[in-house]
């Protein structure tokens, strides 16, 4: 019980709990009575939603512009066009989708599944006792292994307020998306999967949601021109539940790596 409670607790609560434990031991001795077994009370964890101030809303576009040119560009590249496929291209992406993702990363800071809220000790034990990890099955591993999200974006989004997240989405949505690029792979198969789906595997056409040109809309991301390897890794994450997208997880449940590679290669070639 205590473990669950403390795992979610922010630092302040941890400090308070530490003091409470110390005090409890003292009082127990002073009264010469056994300490009660109940865990001490601590502040409930979880995201606190405050309505953004008018000033925050007013400053958000400028903040977003500065952040993009300073921090975001380090991975996502100049004008939102990243080089390494570890990081998605953001230029021309749907603004609503980007803001939603930032919100998700922001909330990871409170998510009890995020590895960084397990204690060092717990994390160590988990690591050294996890045979799957020892054998190297990391994609299929538990949600705590969404390395890219918590190694990078969780921290970036940690201190953003919601107007700034929205402004960042707007900023990148306005940048021109790069044209499609040649990709290696079974493009024919990819095109079929994207445009028509595969009834034998229970896959509906990707185009149904992502649009015939894969330009996305609203909460549905643009895929056209995205790094094939990034799309492939995300499909793996979504299929295994590491990245929680319920609507898609069921649809792609029966696809294999070859399917993923084909469709990922295909979308990279689209303008």
């Amino acid at each position: 019980m205590e473990t669950n409670m403390t795992r979610n607790a922010p630092w302040a609560a941890r400090i308070l709990t530490g003091f409470a434990l110390a005090l409890m031991a003292t009082f127990a001795a002073a009264e010469d009575a056994a300490a009660p077994a109940a865990a001490p009370a601590a502040a409930p964890a979880g995201p606190t939603e405050l309505a953004p101030s008018p000033l925050a809303i007013k400053l958000a576009p400028e903040r977003a512009h500065l952040l993009a040119g300073k921090w975001c560009q380090a991975c996502h590249g100049h004008n939102g066009v990243s080089v390494a496929p570890t990081f998605p291209i953001l230029a021309g992406q749907s603004s609503e989708y980007l803001a939603l993702q930032l919100k998700y990363f922001h909330n990871l800071n409170q998510d009890d599944r995020a590895v960084t809220h397990e204690s060092m000790f717990e994390q160590w034990i988990l690591n050294v006792t996890d045979l799957r990890k020892v054998l190297g099955y990391r994609y299929e591993d538990a949600p705590r292994n969404e390395d890219r999200a918590w190694d990078f974006m969780k921290g970036v989004a940690r201190d953003l307020d919601s107007p700034t997240m929205q402004a960042l989405g707007d900023y990148y949505a306005k940048l021109p998306a790069p044209p499609g690029r040649p990709a290696k792979g079974d493009l024919e198969r990819g095109k079929t999967l994207f445009a028509e789906g595969d009834a034998s595997k229970g896959l509906l056409a990707c185009a149904m949601c992502h649009g015939p040109d894969a330009h996305g809309q609203g909460p549905i991301p643009r895929l056209a021109g995205q790094h094939a390897d990034y799309v492939f890794v995300q499909l793996k994450f979504i299929q295994s539940g590491i990245r929680a997208v319920d609507q898609m997880q069921a649809l792609i449940a029966n696809l294999n790596d070859a399917d993923f590679k084909a469709v990922a290669a295909y979308v990279q070639t689209l303008d």
């Binding site: 941890r14 110390a22 005090l23 409890m24 031991a25 001795a29 002073a30 960084t116 204690s119 000790f121």
Partner: peptide
């Protein structure tokens, strides 16, 4: 009392360190 206080503080401190986020 002092002994118990020291014990309590030490326990609290140890617990605090071990449960510190890996971050």
């Amino acid at each position: 009392v002092a002994r118990w206080l020291a014990f309590g503080l030490a326990t609290g401190a140890a617990w605090f360190v071990l449960s510190a986020p890996a971050q």
